[in-house]
């Protein structure tokens, strides 16, 4: 597992994380509010995000490929094609095999897929251009409770260490998953495999609990008293405010376009 953040020096990387967080949220909100079949608006939303990807020097391939991840979920919307709103059209597919579908349902299905795909891209852009600690600071400045931010911060600190631990455990298990010549019955029963995986999880949690004791001791030795540090509530600069306002106005315009072009 690797972190998505890409170290580049671009204007998007250097932007205040709060601006990026709010813009991301606004982007997904306006895109979601855009009605079905508003293709011109979708194209321009995509244009906006691809331009931002170019500005952040991530490369189009990186963002577009990563964004395909959300696609398997599209299965949930497939039924729309066949039982969407009337009218339904029947096609002769092959020698009497008929297929009934709803054009309106097909449009909704395609719209959901495309909106989802574009939304993932803006989320990728946020994660790839913002260091996680900066993102956390931004969330705290945006009034996310500091206890929650502290938990997530510690989680982040140890995430990759523990992922390595899991990787090694999985390798150790794979190393002992062997066959004997001539035998076709190997692998044990499914419930046995599940139980072994459970043992690995139990061992992982136990090691993590003990790790948290060591982390706590280390925090104490650096003067932690149980009080979490207060957040720095520096207001957004005027430039950032204007930039954000401009971005939101642009999104609102795309949404308006969507209102009139979709249906």
């Amino acid at each position: 597992m690797r972190e998505l953040f890409r170290q580049n020096r671009s204007i998007i990387h250097q932007m205040d994380a709060r601006v990026k967080v709010i813009f991301t949220l606004a982007f997904v909100l306006f895109l979601s509010l855009t009605p079905f079949n508003a293709w011109p608006a979708y194209i321009l939303f995509l244009t906006l995000i691809l331009s931002a990807a170019l500005f952040s020097r991530l490369g189009l391939g990186f963002v577009l490929k990563r964004a395909l991840l959300a696609l398997p979920f599209i299965l949930a919307a497939v039924p729309l094609i066949f039982i969407g709103p009337p009218p339904h059209i029947t096609l002769d597919v092959f020698r009497g095999v008929q297929l009934t579908y709803s054009p309106e349902g097909l449009g909704r299905f395609a719209s959901i897929a495309v909106k989802s795909w574009i939304s993932v891209q803006v989320a990728i852009l946020l994660a790839a251009t913002t260091r996680f600690p900066d993102l956390l600071t931004a969330l705290q400045q945006l009034r996310v409770p500091k206890l929650f931010v502290a938990i997530v911060g510690l989680m982040w600190r140890y995430l990759f260490v523990i992922v390595d631990e899991v990787t090694r455990m999985a390798r150790a298990r794979t190393s002992r998953s062997a066959t004997v010549p001539g035998s076709h019955h190997h692998g044990g029963s499914v419930s046995w495999r599940a139980g072994v995986t459970g043992g690995m999880a139990g061992s992982l949690f136990l090691r993590s609990l003990e790790r948290s004791d060591r982390v706590y001791a280390a925090m104490l030795s650096r003067g932690y008293t149980g009080e979490l540090p207060a957040s720095d509530t520096r207001p957004l600069s005027n430039g950032d405010r204007q930039l954000l306002a401009l971005g939101v106005v642009l999104l609102a315009m795309l949404w308006l376009l969507g209102l009139f072009s979709g249906g």
Partner: peptide, 16 residues
């Protein structure tokens, strides 16, 4: 620290 580390462990444990 307990909640933070355990959150990391659950995240990582989902890879098992």
């Amino acid at each position: 620290p307990l909640m933070g580390v355990l959150a990391a462990a659950i995240f990582a444990g989902q890879m098992l």
